[in-house]
Simulated scan of single mutants.
Amino acid sequence: MFIPASDAVTQPLHLVTPPATAVPGEPAETPVAASVPRSGAHSAIAKLGDWVLNILAVFGVLCIALTILAFVGNYTIILFKTGSMDPTIPQGSVAVVHEIPATEVKVGDVITVDREPGLKPITHRVIAVEQLGGGEALISMQGDANPNPDPEPYRESTVRKVVWHIPGLAKQVVWLSNPYVLGGITLGAALLVLWAFWPRAETARRRH
C-alpha cells in the first residue's frame, strides 16, 4: 500500500557516534572542560571592586596633579574657620589661593596675608592699595561681614589671591587630614588592590 510522504509517520533517528579510537603514535584527544560561569554574587563583588579601583585611580591622579600644581604654580588650600567673609565665602569653606606679587593686587580682590608671629594668616577683601616701590605695597582690607576695616594696613611683597572656593568642605578636609584616617584609607586601598589581583582558584583549575 502506498502512503504519501506527507502523511507518513516520521521518527528521528538517534545516531550513535562511536568512541574515538586512539591511533598509535598520536596523542589521544583530551576533553575540554566547559568553563563554569561566575555566580551573580561573585560577579557583583568583582564589579564593585573594579568600580572602587577606578575611583582610587582617579583620586590618585588628582592628588598627583594637585601636588604638581602646588609646587609649580604656587597654589595652596586654605580653610575658612570664621564667617568674616560671609556671605561671599561662608564659614567652613575651602578655598584655593595663588601666590602673586603684592604689586598686582587690585581693589576688590580677596587675598590672604601673613601676619606677625603668633597670629594666623587673614583672608579679607582689598579696599585700598598704595604702591611703596621696591616690589612692596601697603594693602588695606576688610571682611565682607565686618562693619569696620582691619585695624592697620599690611605691608607686603607677596600675597595669596583666592581663585575659587567650595562652601562646606572644611570639615571633610580636616577629617581626611587625620593621620589615622589616612592610614586606614591607605590600608584599605592596598587590601583592595591585593584582592583584585589575587589569582582565583577557578582560574587555576581552568589552566590545569
Rank of each mutant, 00 (worst) to 15 (best):
K171W: 05
A102D: 05
H14W: 07
F197W: 12
L15E: 10
A22C: 10
V173K: 03
G25I: 12
S43A: 11
V94D: 02
E104G: 06
R38K: 12
V96Y: 00
L69G: 10
P117E: 06
P31Q: 06
P167F: 02
A5L: 13
T203E: 15
P151Q: 07
A102E: 03
Q11V: 14
V174D: 08
S6C: 05
L192I: 04
L176M: 15
P37V: 06
G60T: 14
R160S: 12
A20V: 06
H165D: 09
T88L: 01
E29Q: 13
T158V: 14
A20Q: 11
D86K: 01
W175G: 04
S6M: 15
M85A: 02
P101N: 06
R160D: 12
P18G: 08
Q142S: 03
V129K: 08
E26N: 09
M1E: 14
L79R: 00
G108Y: 02
Q11P: 01
L194C: 00
L13A: 14
W175T: 07
R115W: 00
V163T: 11
S39T: 15
P19Y: 14
A95R: 01
W198T: 10
G25S: 13
E99N: 15
L56R: 00
G188F: 04
V61D: 09
I68D: 09
R155F: 08
E130Y: 01
H14S: 15
K161S: 09
T203K: 09
T30R: 15
G40R: 13
I78A: 06
K81E: 05
A189H: 08
G73T: 00
W195D: 08
D144N: 11
V126P: 07
V97W: 03
V9A: 11
I78N: 01
H98M: 02
G168A: 07
F71T: 14
D150A: 10
A44L: 13
A57T: 11
Y180S: 13
A170I: 01
N74W: 00
E29F: 12
L79A: 14
S140A: 11
L13Y: 15
